[in-house]
């Protein structure tokens, strides 16, 4: 376990940040997702440090643009920087974010060891977001995006995405 510093986000910027969402999972705001590592206002300029979930995540360019638009609309000058370190982890998704994710139909990430067991098919641990059964099986390690795996529920027969643990 590495201790990660809480991101420095100035409270007057939160409302606007809350309006910017992940284009792939629109119910999650960038704050829920934990990708904003810093947001401060200095000499009239809003400075944001954004970290990617995955290196090649195409959503990052869109999120960067949306952040610029959101603050420009408020009459602010805004600078968005992409930072890689420390690397994003699924631990940074807020509890509220995880709940929204589940309500949206995506199973939440398990702990690192359980994630491995689930993806190797050793144990049935991933809970179906429709009927809450853990009687589910892995269809593919890569789902609709790199951050998700595809599962199917053996009880209600629904296929669903599982958000993979990233640590």
């Amino acid at each position: 376990m590495t201790l990660i510093q809480e991101p420095k986000i100035e409270s007057q910027l939160r409302d606007t940040l809350q309006t910017v969402s992940d284009p792939e999972i629109p119910v999650l705001s960038v704050l829920d997702l934990g990708v904003i590592r810093e947001a401060i206002e200095e000499d009239g300029v809003v400075k944001i440090k954004l970290t990617p979930t995955y290196s090649g995540c195409p959503a990052m360019d869109v999120i960067g643009d949306d952040l610029r638009k959101a603050f420009t609309a408020k009459g602010k000058i805004v600078e968005v920087d992409l930072v890689l370190s420390p690397a994003w982890s699924t631990d940074w998704i807020s509890e509220e974010g995880l709940k929204k994710m589940e309500a949206y139909g995506i199973a939440r990430p398990l702990s690192e060891t359980k994630d491995k067991d689930a993806l190797l098919g050793n144990q049935k641990l991933v809970k179906c977001p429709q009927c809450e059964s853990t009687h589910t099986h892995l269809v593919s390690q890569f789902g609709s995006t790199a951050c998700k795996a595809l599962f199917k529920c053996d009880d209600c027969q629904e296929p669903f995405d599982y958000f993979k643990c990233l640590k």
Partner: peptide
């Protein structure tokens, strides 16, 4: 479909790292 998506997802990760 599943392997197609998996391989292109891996490609995307590799491109992302390449960009950095």
């Amino acid at each position: 479909l599943e392997t197609d998506i998996a391989l292109t997802n891996i490609a995307l990760d590799l491109f992302g790292q390449t960009r950095s």
